[in-house]
Design a protein around this nucleic acid. Structure first.
Length: 1127
RNA sequence: GCCCGGAUGGCGGAACUGGUAUACGCGCACGACUUAAAAUCGUGUCUCGCAAGGGAUGUGGGUUCGAUUCCCACUCCGGGCACCA
């Protein structure tokens, strides 16, 4: 027997696998498919981190097991190579990022190969390869076409000394991470992606996937769905309204002022009416200059300024209330304005206290007893009652009078009902006298704390819904009357010292009242409760009241999200160029618009659009069409043709039936026209309102779509997603046969009938000047630059290359200017898993056939740090591609798990500066890849962070050596240790599925320890063992497999199924407990009856001794496990 | 401040769904082999106690015949978020 020489063995098998291509996935196969995915690495200059190996090995183990289980497995690899570190390195050294990337990926590739991962290297991808990013750019263009990519002003972090824009992660405590200098926020036009349009689905569809629960939670928190209402507050003596978003419409009667975000657009609009404008302006300036840190930490104390001279009307109370601006209200969330309800919101409460604003209570707390003997009994009637809670102080000591009830589980203060017309304080004094006998009251005070309780009263046998007023009483002396026997039977009275009261009181309401009384709890009550001071809504609970009140004040139920649109621009070099060209002349080109209304005159739609377009210098023809109430399409088409001329400068936009007229016009026009825009249009009459047969009969409903296409340069279909009259499939068919772009939107008013601007309509027809590069000209390749430093103006270094920047406009062929921003790192990684299924495709990002076969990803493992952003972004892109029918599923990943980090020795993060970085190459050299793999899987639970240990790695190495040495003990004819091996197979199989690799390995070790004690081992058992070890340590296993005389790779062997019948023991050991303490063990026959076992145990010597003469009260038997005797 | 994890021997950790706490590995100690050392193999290794027995899973309480596991309160460590109406 040779010695275990890991270097030789590992190299030998890595070569062999590469030669035979055993790990290459076959597109299409009769076998079931399995797609396992790891996050593709960023090839940094530091080389591979041992953490990469941990997660790669885990998926490798699963993939290898799946292959042996008969799956066609895809386990691909590639490089996420765009990004800052490489660019910063290029800035420092002047070496081209392409070269840096090439060197780094070469290192990574060599390192990954040295560990023996079963990647399909034939599908390797690289996000910086133009053949790859061509498709990243292509997806961006699709987003642009659908209106999901747009340019907007947004803030970037700007380093004053480096003079470059910084990513959020480069700003640490408001300082530049590179130079330590100051940073500020600068406004810049940036590309944005409208991920918020997918917020709802990104949230809801989490129900359909198998992600770890923390991951789902992380996603949900990030999306931040919150349901509430939008409510208008009218400004007095002005036509403006303040739109407010609130999740608590039930508290509106308590809204005593309104706050706008300092940068809310209304603030500027109201300037002329604001009497203290200079003060307001000063405040707005101050807020702008504050950094995030100042805003969020130092400034927990709230600041703000009243807008003097204007008031708004509270729509519920009709009161005039003041308007403030304050920076704790964010312009970016909800509507950028709130109604402040200081009595029921902590922040508003704090603000109101500071500025002396009025606080009005409109919700009183309620406690529902749900368990215990006083639980509410729905079958019994409920009585409403007013009552008191009396906190009574001792005449001398700091003690308080409490009652311990005898028939109910209550430790509580004195309570009692208020009788007719009785004053609250009088009622408290009377109750104290009745229940305790004390009557010398020195001081009495209503502390103005009211709360409800709904519970069952065991003495009175009814449900009560009681409103408790809290009263404080102080006794003057111990003077006490005799109390009735009836009271004595109900409860005992106790004096409890102040410190013990909170612990003693066991009714939540009582505890709450006490804490309020002690000043331990804020008087601001933020939960749901019962309404007061709310007019006709009094006595309703929050849930009921919310709906009613929204209806009453004409508000709108609305869901908002914390999620913000995705800032997609980077002023950097090393990223995908954004494939658009800016064309000034296209932006400024003036058109002749023809706007066509639908059935009846559409006053709501046309006027604002006409105004808007004319303001921009376009000519607009928007006639009232003949017979709008009995419309005839043919007649209307002729009317237009008679009254105006169609030229190549004409844009026709039709709404509803107007869209039909528009199509017919396009068919009839002599000159080609610029654009045809169809808003909620249709091509079949049965989808018009059935009450309008005249519309149906107005013409033959035949269209010459070929002609329409040839006569229009561009065709756009805009549809209200929720407008039910025209079904989605018809819109899609229209888009298909007219080769039109289709946009689904959620307009402000249904069917776009808002009487003010509908932003989506404007977006569709107003030219921004940003022209998409023609798809056939993709990719827009990154040009070579001399210097990677961003420009002084904050643009990317690309802006300096005039040859690259100055190009023809893709539309008018006039002078154009390329976008010099590049895409963020997240772009290429949002869809890379789709490319793997067809990585060399030149016509599509991946063929539908391959996508259909391989996607979704069955199992995706990655780091916890990527579970919010990367996962969300790629889910968004995937849903978008799904909507375009380009991918077969709406979710990209069926299952997502995550791994813990590997920390340096001692528990600190591995870093160059600490000098605790472990180079995997060294470990592979001294111990071998198999040892490294085993160690990383064995070191701790996979999902948790673990510190590296130089010492502990020897354990797995010794284990492998023991396995190696065991080969001399293998005997063909030996009876095999079936019990041990079958048990191991079962445990290892299930542990791998649960990613419990550490216990799987310990099972393998236990097996080897057991077998090592024997003289020899049967070949059958040894081979089975090698099979279940093979995913963990593939090299040594192949070698031993070959030594045993096998020709074919062990990879091609089937995964062993545990023979459960061999695991079952005839006789087993069970534990005998007396009073829960282990006393002895006995052997029983498996599945012996409880009776038999009891008999055996009772006569057991040890047990008899323990029992002494005590009587056996009870015996608990857990089948085949334990028996507990209670005496 | 909020959210999510975690806390078990000298160390990494194990324990199914509430049923023998400390599997497996490292380290350490002793022994065998050796002239010797390393390697290897064997034995031992939570703690108090001679033993019988008792005590230990961050702390305090609760539920239970029985709690590392469930509930309540708290402490410490790690990660994420930042006034989200």
């Amino acid at each position: 027997m040779k010695e275990y020489d890991h270097k030789k063995i590992e190299k030998k098998w890595q070569k062999e696998w590469e030669k035979t291509g055993v790990y290459e996935a076959k597109n299409f196969s009769k076998k079931p498919k399995f797609y396992g995915l790891i996050e593709f690495p960023y090839p940094s200059g530091a080389g591979m981190h041992v953490g990469h190996i941990r997660s790669n090995t885990a998926m490798d183990i699963i993939s290898r097991k799946r292959r042996m289980e008969g799956y066609n497995v895809l386990y691909p690899i590639g490089w996420d190579a765009f990004g800052l570190p490489t660019e910063n390195y290029a800035i420092k050294t002047g070496i081209h990022p392409i070269k840096v990337t090439k060197d780094n990926t070469d290192t990574f590739r060599r390192q990954l190969k040295s560990i023996g991962f079963s990647f399909d290297w034939s599908r390797e991808i690289n996000t910086t390869d133009p053949k790859y990013y061509k498709w990243t750019q292509w997806i961006f263009l699709q987003l642009l076409k659908k209106g999901l990519a747009y340019k907007a002003k947004s803030y970037i972090n700007w380093c004053l000394s480096c003079k470059i824009g910084l990513a959020n992660e480069e700003v640490v405590n408001d300082k530049c991470e590179r130079c330590g200098g100051d940073t500020e926020k600068r406004e810049k036009e940036q590309w944005m992606l409208a991920i918020t349009k997918y917020a709802d689905r990104l949230d809801k569809d989490l129900d359909t996937v198998d992600y770890l629960s923390q991951i789902k939670l992380g996603q949900r928190n990030w999306i931040g769905r919150s349901e509430g209402a939008e409510i208008d507050f009218e400004i007095k003596n002005n036509n403006e309204k303040i739109k407010v978003f609130t999740t608590r419409p039930d508290t509106i009667f308590g809204a005593t002022y309104v706050i706008l975000a300092p940068d809310h657009e209304l603030v500027q609009k109201l300037k002329s009416q604001i009497k203290n404008w200079s003060e307001v302006e000063k405040y707005i300036k101050e807020v702008k200059s504050k950094t995030d840190i100042e805003r969020t930490t130092e400034d927990k104390i709230k600041t703000g300024v009243e807008l003097k001279g204007i008031k708004v009307i509270n729509p519920a109370t009709q009161e005039e209330i003041p308007i403030w601006i304050a920076d704790y209200v964010l312009a970016s969330y909800g509507t950028g304005a709130i109604m402040a309800v200081p009595a029921h919101d902590e922040r508003d409460f704090e603000f109101a206290k500071k500025f002396n604003l009025s606080i009005r209570k409109v919700i009183e707390p309620i406690e529902y007893a749900q368990t215990g003997v006083d639980a509410f009994r729905p079958e019994l009637p409920t009585k409403d009652k007013e009552a008191i809670f009396a906190i009574v102080k001792h005449w001398k000591e700091d003690k308080y009078l409490c009652l311990k009830w005898k028939n109910a589980p209550w430790n509580i203060f004195i309570t009692g009902g208020i009788e007719n017309n009785e004053k609250i304080i009088d009622s408290a004094i009377r109750e104290v006298e009745e229940e305790s006998g004390y009557f010398d009251i020195k001081k009495a005070e209503d502390i103005d704390h009211v709360m409800y309780a709904q519970f069952y009263h065991p003495n009175r046998k009814i449900n009560l819904k009681t409103r408790f007023h809290t009263v404080y009483l102080e006794l003057g002396s111990d003077a006490r009357k005799e109390i009735s026997q009836e009271e004595k039977d109900k409860h005992e009275t106790l004096w409890i010292p102040r410190e013990e009261v909170e612990e003693f009181i066991n009714v939540p309401n009582g505890k709450h009242a006490w804490r309020i009384f002690q000043g331990l709890e804020s008087r601001c009550f933020t939960q749901d409760g019962i309404l007061v001071n709310s007019g006709k809504f009094n006595k309703l609970d929050s849930k009921e009241a919310t709906k009613e009140i929204v209806k009453f004040i004409g508000g709108k139920e609305k869901t908002t999200f914390k999620l913000r649109d995705w800032v997609f621009s980077r002023q950097r070099y090393w990223g995908e160029p954004i494939p658009v060209v800016y064309c000034e002349s296209c932006k400024n080109r003036k058109y002749n618009y023809i706007l066509l209304h639908g059935y009846k005159r559409q006053d709501l739609f046309i006027p604002w659009l006409k105004m808007e377009l004319e303001k921009q210098g376009h000519k607009v023809y928007a006639p009232l069409l003949p017979n709008p109430l009995k419309p005839n399409v043919v007649e209307q088409v002729e009317f237009i043709l008679k009254n105006t001329v169609l030229t190549e400068n004409t844009i026709i936009m039709g709404v509803s039936l107007g869209a039909v007229v528009a199509m017919k016009l396009a068919e009839k026009t002599k000159s080609v026209i610029a654009k045809l825009v169809l808003v909620d249009g249709f091509i079949k009459p049965e989808f018009t309102d059935q009450a309008r047969p005249d519309v149906e009969r107005s013409f033959d409903w035949k269209f010459n779509f070929k002609k329409i296409i040839s006569k229009t340069k561009e065709r756009i279909i805009l549809a209200d997603k929720d407008f039910s009259v025209v079904p989605e499939w018809q819109l899609q068919k229209m888009a298909e046969i007219m080769n039109a772009d289709i946009l689904y939107e959620k307009p402000i008013a249904p069917h776009f009938q808002n009487n003010g601007p509908e932003p989506e309509i404007l977006n569709t027809i107003i030219e921004t000047g940003w022209m998409p590069v023609s798809e056939k000209d993709l990719p827009v390749e990154l040009p070579k630059v001399k210097n990677y430093q961003p420009t002084n103006s904050g643009e990317s270094p690309l802006a300096n290359i005039s040859k690259w920047v100055n190009v023809k406009c893709p539309k008018c062929k006039g002078k154009g200017r390329r976008e010099t921003d590049t895409m963020p790192n997240w772009a290429g990684s949002s869809w890379y898993f789709l490319r793997y299924v067809d990585s060399k495709n030149k016509k599509e990002f991946a063929s539908k056939k391959n996508l259909k076969y391989w996607t979704p990803v069955d199992w995706y493992n990655g780091g916890m740090e990527h579970t919010t952003l990367h996962l969300l972004y790629s889910r968004f892109w995937h849903k978008f591609l799904f909507d375009l029918k380009l991918v077969p599923t709406s979710e990209p990943y069926q299952k997502r798990t995550s791994h813990g980090m590997i920390l340096g020795e001692g528990g600190a993060k591995m870093s160059k500066s600490l000098g605790n970085v472990i180079n995997p190459d060294d470990i592979v050299k001294t111990y071998g890849a198999d040892t490294l793999r085993l160690y990383e899987m064995f070191m701790g639970p996979f999902s948790q962070s673990v510190a590296w240990s130089e010492e502990a790695i020897i354990g797995p190495r010794r284990f492998l050596e023991r396995i190696w040495n065991l080969q001399s003990k293998v005997q063909k004819n030996k009876k095999y240790v079936e019990f041990e091996i079958e048990k191991a197979i079962k445990k290892v199989s299930s542990d791998i599925e649960e990613m419990k690799f550490n216990t799987a390995i310990s099972t393998l070790m236990i097996f080897i320890n057991e077998v090592g004690k024997l003289e020899s081992i049967s070949q059958i058992a040894y081979e089975k063992f090698l099979k279940i070890l093979s995913p963990f340590a593939p090299h040594i296993v192949e070698e031993l497999w070959q030594i045993l005389g096998h020709q074919k790779s062990i990879n091609l062997e089937p995964w062993p199924m545990p023979d459960l019948s061999k695991i079952k023991d005839e006789e087993i050991k069970i534990v005998v407990q007396v009073n829960g303490k282990v006393r002895t063990e006995i052997m029983i026959k498996i599945d012996d009856s409880e009776e038999d076992i009891k008999k055996q145990v009772i006569s057991n010597e040890v047990v008899l001794k323990q029992l002494a003469d005590r009587e056996v009260k009870k015996v608990f038997y857990v089948k085949n496990r334990l028996i507990n005797i209670v005496v």
